[in-house]
Design a protein around this nucleic acid. Structure first.
Length: 267
DNA sequence: AAAACATGCAACCGCGAACTG
DNA sequence: ACAGTTCGCGGTTGCATGTTT
């Protein structure tokens, strides 16, 4: 037995919504609330599929929707959340009030994806595109890094820095030290060591997710990152044996509320 | 001015999860 | 426990609009 259709397709309109249909849907939901999408069209006097009504309401008619372009902050947040969650648009949307999953998805596909590619970052893995070849031997990888510096003559000027990897020249400032010198826009993370590690004075240093994605604020950070040690709760640097707890700590921001899933809890 | 092409976004579709009897 | 139903998500499509030739 096959799956039953969500509605009687013979008697439903498709395509763009008219003003009259919008008005009917808005007034019905205002007086009856959301939900029961299957029966809603008939009750509201709409010749539409329930799914279509739900989509129209959620993506376009909801009064709390934010209109207009995405801000730089929203842009950054989408990239950070996508690097954590992947194409979980609905989850990402919960962190951007007034934005819908569909809107974010469209924005990602039309703007952000292209922006990352221009920066040489794979929009799927959020790693430098060339890093997929990272298992080459050391010298080969170093040559690659050198050539990248040459290739990246467009956009921000890139230089090779002994301590910090590839760094944007315009970002190089004597007032900045360590991690702060890393190019914020072109973090290519090119290194020979396994990812997620830094070499600090000959010993390895592991970054927690909070630092890694720019959310480190001291309370959440336990990796000993310079940026985070200004806070009173900064703990001592992690040793290699702590890597598991470091990576596992506060995964997806469940403790730090970087990602607050409380609205998703069962009623 | 018009055709061709590119872009952005609303809407659709199919699937799997969750719910219900 | 199971089958049927409903909902929500993510991928994809198609159309309107803008830009280029």
């Amino acid at each position: 037995m096959g799956r039953s259709p969500c509605c009687e397709k013979d008697h439903t309109n498709k395509g763009a919504w008219t003003k009259e249909e919008d008005d009917k849907l808005i007034s019905y939901i205002k007086s009856h609330g959301e939900g029961c999408w299957r029966s809603l069209p008939r009750s509201a006097g709409l010749l539409r599929c329930g799914k279509s009504c739900r989509l129209r309401w959620i993506n376009y008619l909801r009064p709390d929707l934010k209109r207009g372009n995405f801000t730089v902050e929203e842009d950054d947040l989408i990239i950070k959340l996508h690097s954590l969650l992947g194409n979980k648009w609905s989850l990402i949307a919960t962190r951007l009030p007034g934005r819908t999953d569909n809107e974010i998805k469209n924005y990602w596909n039309t703007h952000v994806k292209r922006k990352l590619l221009r920066r040489g970052i794979d929009p799927i893995t959020h790693r430098p595109i060339n890093e997929t070849k990272a298992c080459k031997d050391f010298s080969e990888a170093r040559e690659e890094e050198d050539s990248l510096v040459k290739i990246l003559s467009f956009g921000p000027k890139v230089e090779k820095d002994q301590e910090n990897g590839l760094v944007c020249k315009k970002e190089i400032d004597e007032d900045l030290v360590g991690e702060e010198r890393r190019c914020l826009d072109l973090n290519l993370e090119l290194r020979i060591s396994p990812p997620w590690q830094d070499q600090v004075h000959g010993r390895e240093k592991f970054h927690c997710n909070a630092c890694r994605f720019g959310f480190g604020n001291g309370k959440e950070c336990r990796c000993g990152d310079v940026k985070c040690q200004t806070d009173e709760s900064s703990s001592s640097s992690y040793s290699s044996s702590d890597i598991t707890s470091s990576i596992g700590y506060d995964f997806l921001g469940l403790n730090s509320r970087v990602l607050d899933f409380s609205p998703l809890e069962m009623q």
